[in-house]
Design a protein around this nucleic acid. Structure first.
Lengths: 199, 199
DNA sequence: TGAATGTCATTTGTCAACAATCAATACCCA
DNA sequence: TGGGTATTGATTGTTGACAAATGACATTCA
């Protein structure tokens, strides 16, 4: 976990985590002044952070009124988001099979170990964090990470509705299956496992 | 053309237009102080605007250093972007065919007339503006416009490399073909025309 | 009554001054 | 001469005060 030197990033990370872990529910309003006092800083960096999160799709803003936590995407939108994520991550995996940099495999293995542990525990925030990190590793590995900024807002919108009732261990097994196929060099299998995992 | 009441949006629109029309080339640095003096306002709204554009992918920021105009997307990234745009806009068109709200057809017809004129002229900024507006109308029409915020950053990244040498009139004819198919109620034809137009 | 208008508190928008950081370069010393 | 280090100027990061906009509520007049 890297911590940024500037306040706006720290605030953004903190709020992002609280939203994704479900501590902040949709429609919850966030006031600049309140947050400023809560963090013990001025409104400036808070503004920046809220702007960040708004552009990431986690908040919605109305001029002169304020921001609130975004609602879960509608059926159509969610469906589109799933397709976009598949497209991006599949492209990344395909690109990886062109070079097969072993570094990625190591990082995925490390992540898997932590993820397995987290899925057994009760800290949903940690689970979300590691799940996202897994997919981020894959996207980062392709094309010098150029796809990350495209992928992140899409991923975040999807995680707005991180199912509170999903079978976490099943999710872990799906991650493991993807990595196993990559280790074995079976591209088609990896892509199929990836696509069926993104739902 | 709607003009926002708050400065940050005005600044963002202005800079966005200058970047998309090619007046500001990739890697051009943008300094907060300089822009503030240029617009005759303080650095606050400038900061907000730059943050906006950074999240939209038109600028890239380095902490404590500043922002510059983003480079054109790499081959792989551009390829992904094309697929994402097709996915989103095709979904929107499909959704439209489910309801066939006539209002959209009228707006598209109006846009087409203006676009034809602009393509004959020499104001590339105007052409870009209308081209984007055309696709935006389509995306906005579906699902109460919920797809717009997903679509916009993708669209903008693609327009970073708005071909300065493309055949504008051909582009107009492609737009017209899409609208014609929609008027006639031929869904498959509209989707094909749309997909082959996005390249 | 009820629609229109005025007011008031809350919240965001804007500003200018100050602090922290970075990158380039001049400097020192082996 | 070359490598490492302090200095300096430019630029972003942060702050607190003030201005403007909004929405809710009270008030007025037909």
């Amino acid at each position: 976990m890297k911590l940024a030197s500037n306040l706006q990033e720290q605030v953004a990370s903190h709020l992002r985590r609280r939203i994704l872990s479900g501590q902040l529910l949709p429609d919850t309003p966030l006031r600049e002044q309140t947050l400023a006092e809560e963090f013990g800083i001025s409104r400036g960096p808070i503004r920046d952070a809220l702007l960040h999160l708004t552009k990431e799709g986690l908040l919605v803003a109305k001029p002169n009124v304020g921001v609130k936590v975004a609602a879960e995407p509608s059926g159509l939108k969610r469906n589109v988001i799933v397709h976009l994520r598949r497209e991006i991550e599949a492209s990344a995996v395909t690109a990886w099979f062109g070079a097969r940099d072993a570094g990625l495999l190591g990082r995925l293995d490390d992540n898997l170990a932590l993820y397995r542990e987290a899925c057994g525990g009760s800290d949903l925030g940690q689970v979300v964090e590691l799940d996202m990190a897994f997919h981020r590793l894959i996207v980062e590995a392709a094309d010098q990470g150029s796809l990350v900024d495209l992928w992140l807002p899409i991923m975040l919108r999807m995680f707005l509705r991180y199912s509170r009732h999903r079978d976490l261990m099943e999710s872990y097994r799906e991650h493991a299956a993807i990595v196993r196929a990559m280790h074995a060099g079976r591209e088609w299998e990896a892509l199929e496992a990836l696509k069926s995992h993104i739902v």
